[in-house]
Design a protein around this nucleic acid. Structure first.
Length: 481
DNA sequence: GGTATGCAAATAAGG
DNA sequence: CCCTTATTTGCATAC
């Protein structure tokens, strides 16, 4: 079984099977809760005090059946689906949601402490759209894009959890307390939670957010074609991130931007999640010999020698870079040469570049001796070695477009990628890679915060550390296959 | 104007 | 062919 099984849920079909009574549903949930405990890391500190569910995909269909029934009067909110897991909230209307070190999600009930008026008001609002308060940084990023199935009078709605800038007026964080828009303090739930006293705001999914039409986010779309398959047409069914939804009108495609507000990642933090140290870093640690079969000493000596000779010939890094790209063999930019000389490069990379520079330097010296300009200007010899593809620079407009698209759909289909490429005027492959990289960036960011917020030193008794905001990405982590 | 560096595009490798 | 993950490397720009 895949680690992250592809999850396609046919809600329509599931709805037809809905037959659970509330009691049955409760029993089911209890069962699932029992089962889920084994999925949760043994560190109880990582679990929210409320208890919560981490369900495997085998439980999905049952859960869908369950959530298809409108149990909101009992306080059941619905399900959050993320990356092959379903997280069912406990019977509370409000919850703080966050991930633990293992990347699992916890839901912390707030209902006990919310002002009655707030709850009542919320419950009165049409079909009681569940309200999930997302804290900043890791929490919201982890959940951002998570899809929540919401029972409504019209059937099930799917709402992607997205986050608002921390300046959101809906909920703020004052003096260590959650404060709603009505300025009613919301006590941290269940006492055992300890909040950072940093003035972090919370982010809240907006209730009843109007669906934002695709074309609002795009450059003019003069051919009338629909770029986002999840939007815009009037067919009765649309597929939205693998979830088939009855009524496309109630798909809430929130696109609130998540702007990085806190950039609290120090280089040390980042270093923690980096894998390959540079030669410099290795040396600093005291290891100066052979790493990964690479003789660091030899590399260092060559780097020094290379620089010396380069300067002796009066050549700049830029010139060498240009020369390399003009001659056969791999090309390296000024940046690469700079990094090589500084040993700000991994041993493996250094090992790869070294022969290229060696060869070039040898020829350059010969030319120099003959009083000729260094090679690189002459003959574009048949390039047997394929050069790296030139790096694409996307226009701001293109990046904006891509980001907006990504918020709606992190895994566009091949056809959609082609459409985007055509629309923006870039190679299809370039667009495809962009999405790959974007997904990767998001995952890395989440990992980074998880690592930072749950360091080895431990995370005392239920503390929910406040993570910094992450880069401007929102995602649904439904796996493509 | 040369060098250093952050971010992210491109590549490699394994499914 | 496409995905993910790890890594390399270049563009853009700061120093």
């Amino acid at each position: 079984m895949d680690a992250l099984p592809h999850m396609t849920v046919d809600i329509e079909a599931s709805q037809q099977q809905i037959a659970l009574s509330f009691q049955q549903a409760s029993n089911l949930m209890q069962t699932m809760e029992d089962q889920s405990h084994s999925n949760i890391s043994g560190n109880t500190n990582d679990k929210g005090p409320s208890g919560f569910q981490v369900m495997n995909t085998q439980q999905v269909s049952q859960a869908i059946q369950f959530v298809g029934q409108n149990h909101l009067s009992q306080g059941w909110n619905g399900l959050c689906i993320q990356g092959g897991q379903i997280i069912q909230q406990q019977p509370q209307q409000f919850a703080i949601v966050h991930t633990n070190a293992a990347g699992q999600l916890t839901c912390v009930p707030l209902i006990q402490s919310l002002p009655i008026s707030t709850i009542a008001q919320s419950q009165q609002e049409q079909s009681v759209m569940p309200q999930v308060i997302l804290t900043s940084g890791n929490y919201m990023q982890s959940l951002s894009g998570t899809q929540v199935l919401i029972p409504t009078p019209q059937g099930l709605a799917v709402q992607q959890l997205l986050t608002l800038p921390m300046t959101s007026p809906m909920v703020s964080f004052q003096n260590g307390q959650l404060v709603s828009a009505q300025a009613s303090p919301v006590q941290p739930p269940l006492g055992s939670l300890i909040y950072s006293t940093q003035p972090q705001a919370l982010c809240q999914e907006t209730q009843q957010e109007q669906p934002i039409e695709t074309n609002q986010l795009m450059p003019s779309n003069n051919d009338g074609s629909t770029m986002c398959s999840t939007q815009g047409n009037s067919s009765s069914n649309v597929t939205h991130n693998n979830l088939k939804v009855e009524n496309p009108d109630i798909i809430a495609s929130t696109v609130a931007s998540v702007t990085p507000i806190f950039s609290t990642f120090t280089p040390e933090m980042v270093q923690e999640v980096q894998d390959q140290p540079t030669i410099n870093e290795i040396s600093r640690e005291g290891n100066t010999h052979i790493v990964d079969g690479v003789d660091l000493k030899e590399i260092k000596e060559f780097a020094k020698e290379f620089k010396m000779k380069r300067l002796a010939m009066g050549l700049t890094q830029t010139q060498v870079g240009l020369a390399l790209s003009a001659t056969a063999g791999p090309a390296y930019s000024q940046s690469a040469i700079c990094r090589f000389e500084k040993l700000d490069i991994t041993p493996k990379s250094a090992q790869k570049i070294k022969p290229v520079l060696e060869k070039w330097m040898k020829e350059a010296e010969e030319s120099y001796q003959l009083g000729r300009p260094p090679n690189g200007v002459h003959i574009h010899s048949p390039e047997h070695t394929k050069k790296r593809k030139k790096r694409t620079s996307f226009s701001n407009q293109a990046v904006e477009y891509l980001n907006e698209y990504f918020k709606k759909k992190t895994h566009p289909t091949g056809t959609e990628i082609s459409g985007i490429a055509h629309q923006l005027g870039y190679d299809r492959e370039v667009i495809r890679i962009w999405f790959c990289n974007k997904r990767q960036a998001l995952k890395n960011a989440v990992r980074l915060t998880n690592k930072i917020q749950a360091p080895r030193s431990g995370n005392p008794s239920g503390t929910i550390p406040i993570a910094p905001a992450l880069p401007d990405v929102s995602i649904s982590t439904v796996n493509a296959s």
